[in-house]
Every structure is written in structure tokens, then in C-alpha cells.
């Protein structure tokens, strides 16, 4: 019931822009277009929904099957004790999406991580650099086309002699 309220509020505010995804496990999942991301997130963060916490932000690589990346946002509302999952597709030909770092501060690092691992650009991000990997690392390790064991040593490795 509770889940329905949020989705009703969303569909009322943004008619035609929000699609509910049915889930067999009972999670609230919503699919949106990436152009509407900022206004919808802003709406969700403030009243009446009050999803004040960005729990998680990640990305899934569907390049081989659907030709796109899928951004996955998890929001949490402390006042109503609810979680919501928001998905948005990033097509292969334009790898960018709006940054949420103005709304939530932890989005800064989370988006840098996604940039590091998948190569998605975030428009309006204050400091778009790699987070985990080092400068000079080529490729995006969590993409499906990056081989698991492709190493790019930062310093030349020793030859072990007996």
C-alpha cells in the first residue's frame, strides 16, 4: 500500500514520464528517462516523499544485450522508512547523465566510482576523475568487455631470478 502512495505521487507529478516496474520480491522500482532524472530526484528528495538519503548509486552493463548501461539509484526515506529503486538507461552513443552531486553530497564519490568503472560521464559533476584506479589506467574494468586478468602495472615488475 505504502509503495503505491509514492508511485501515485510520482505519476501525478510527472504524467507519462514514470513507469512502474513490477517486482516479484515486493521492492518499489521505477523506471525513468535520463533527461528527467534531476527534476524527479529533486521531487523525491523534498516533500511529500522525503527520500532524504541516497543509499546507493551504481551501474549495470547491458551493452551486449540491450546496447545501454543502466543506472540504478537507491533512495531511502528516514521519515517513512521506505526504500525506492530508480532505474534509468544510458544509451551507448551518448554516455552521459546528470550528476546528483548538488542534491546529495555522497553522490560525488559514487559517481566518480561509476565513471572509474564504467566510463559514464556525469554532467555538472565538480571533480570528474577516477576514484579507485590510478592515472594512466586504460579501459573501464567493470565493463563486460574488460578481461578479468588484464593487468596494467603502474611500475615495471621485477624479473625473478634464482
Amino acid at each position: 500500500m505504502e509503495n503505491k502512495k509514492v508511485i501515485d505521487a510520482l505519476t501525478k507529478a510527472f504524467p507519462g514520464k514514470v513507469t512502474e516496474v513490477p517486482d516479484r520480491l515486493g521492492d518499489t522500482i521505477v523506471r525513468i528517462e535520463k533527461d528527467d532524472l534531476l527534476i524527479i530526484m529533486d521531487f523525491l528528495k523534498n516533500r511529500p516523499c522525503e527520500f532524504t538519503m541516497l543509499l546507493d548509486l551504481t551501474c549495470v552493463d547491458y551493452l551486449s544485450s540491450k546496447g545501454c548501461f543502466e543506472m540504478v539509484y537507491h533512495l531511502f526515506s528516514i521519515s517513512s522508512n521506505k526504500r525506492i529503486r530508480i532505474k534509468s538507461e544510458v544509451r551507448k552513443n551518448e554516455l552521459d547523465i546528470d550528476s546528483l552531486s548538488d542534491l546529495w553530497k555522497n553522490a560525488n564519490w559514487l559517481e566518480r566510482e561509476v565513471f572509474d568503472m564504467f566510463g559514464i560521464n556525469f554532467k555538472g559533476h565538480p571533480d570528474m576523475r577516477r576514484l579507485f584506479m590510478y592515472e594512466g589506467f586504460e579501459g573501464y574494468p567493470l565493463c563486460k568487455d574488460y578481461p578479468l586478468r588484464k593487468r596494467q602495472p603502474k611500475i615495471p615488475l621485477r624479473k625473478i631470478t634464482k
Binding site: 574494468p141 574488460y146 578479468l148 586478468r149 588484464k150 593487468r151 602495472p153 615488475l157 621485477r158
Partner: peptide
């Protein structure tokens, strides 16, 4: 951890 991020043994760097 046999993957892209980890050095496979520190003897590749120092004795």
C-alpha cells in the same frame, strides 16, 4: 584475487 587490480605476489616488486 587473481584479477586486474592486484599484484600477484610482492616478490614481483621487492625481494
Amino acid at each position: 584475487y587473481d584479477n586486474y587490480a592486484v599484484v600477484q605476489g610482492i616478490d614481483k616488486i621487492i625481494p
